[in-house]
Amino acid sequence: MANRLPRISSKHKVCIICEGNEEYKYLERLRELHVWNDIYDISLVNAEGNGNIPARYQDRYQNGSYEAVLVFCDTEKKPYEQYEDIKRKINEFHGIDNVAEEIVIFANPCTMQIVSKHWTDETIKSPAKKVNAPLIEKFTGVKDYKGKAAQIDKLMKYVTDANYDTMRNNICKATRDEKLVGSTNFNKLISYLDSCDSTWITTLNQVLE
């Protein structure tokens, strides 16, 4: 009789709560390209809106199936009310001041700030799809980008392992000050998942304890 016990993976299980479709599809694309170190087993959750992020985060954290749970979201525009609310709720959940700084991967003002870095180092200054549509069309040929599912799928085909390094180099130049347009700490996620050194997970969990 066949052994029906589940195969236990030795990989480090990491869950990333994605704000919406763009964030989810982008990280899904990077996962498909195998640009990250193979020691990580990455699970992605589409929160389908920034208002759902804290509950999704708490659920996956309390689930106990993951060694680390992170959040990937936009800051949107000033005064960043919803973004600040996400961080406040994560801090309150853990009962630790400013711990969200270790958990939340952000892009100011939007995730297209990161995606576009695969092709250009231009700074995206608005989260408005209409404003960014010409830039997206210039580099991908996707016309009149509105963030529709089919458009996102088409766009992600232009994200490749070949231009991953271009994005990484461009992101390294970006400021990490979340209050500044064009800022992002996505480099933190890259440094975590590119590395064969998983001690960042231990360090994160020590902070949360």
Rank of each mutant, 00 (worst) to 15 (best):
M1K: 10
M1G: 13
A2V: 14
P6D: 13
S10E: 13
C15A: 14
L33W: 11
H34C: 07
H34A: 12
V35I: 04
D38A: 11
I39P: 02
D41C: 01
L44N: 10
A47R: 01
A55V: 13
R56N: 09
Q62S: 04
G64E: 05
Y66P: 05
V71Y: 08
F72L: 15
C73M: 11
D74I: 08
E81I: 08
Q82T: 14
Y83L: 01
D85Y: 08
R88K: 15
I90Y: 09
I90E: 06
H94V: 10
V99A: 00
I103M: 04
I105K: 01
F106M: 02
C110K: 14
T111M: 13
V115L: 09
S116K: 00
T120V: 03
D121H: 11
E122D: 09
I124V: 09
K129Q: 12
K130P: 00
E137M: 13
T140P: 13
G141A: 09
K143H: 11
Y145C: 12
K146W: 11
K148W: 07
A149R: 14
A149D: 11
Q151T: 10
I152K: 01
D161I: 11
A162K: 14
Y164T: 06
D165L: 03
M167K: 10
R168N: 00
N169S: 01
D177G: 05
K179H: 11
S183T: 02
T184G: 10
L189H: 02
I190W: 03
L193Y: 10
T202P: 12
L204N: 02
N205R: 15
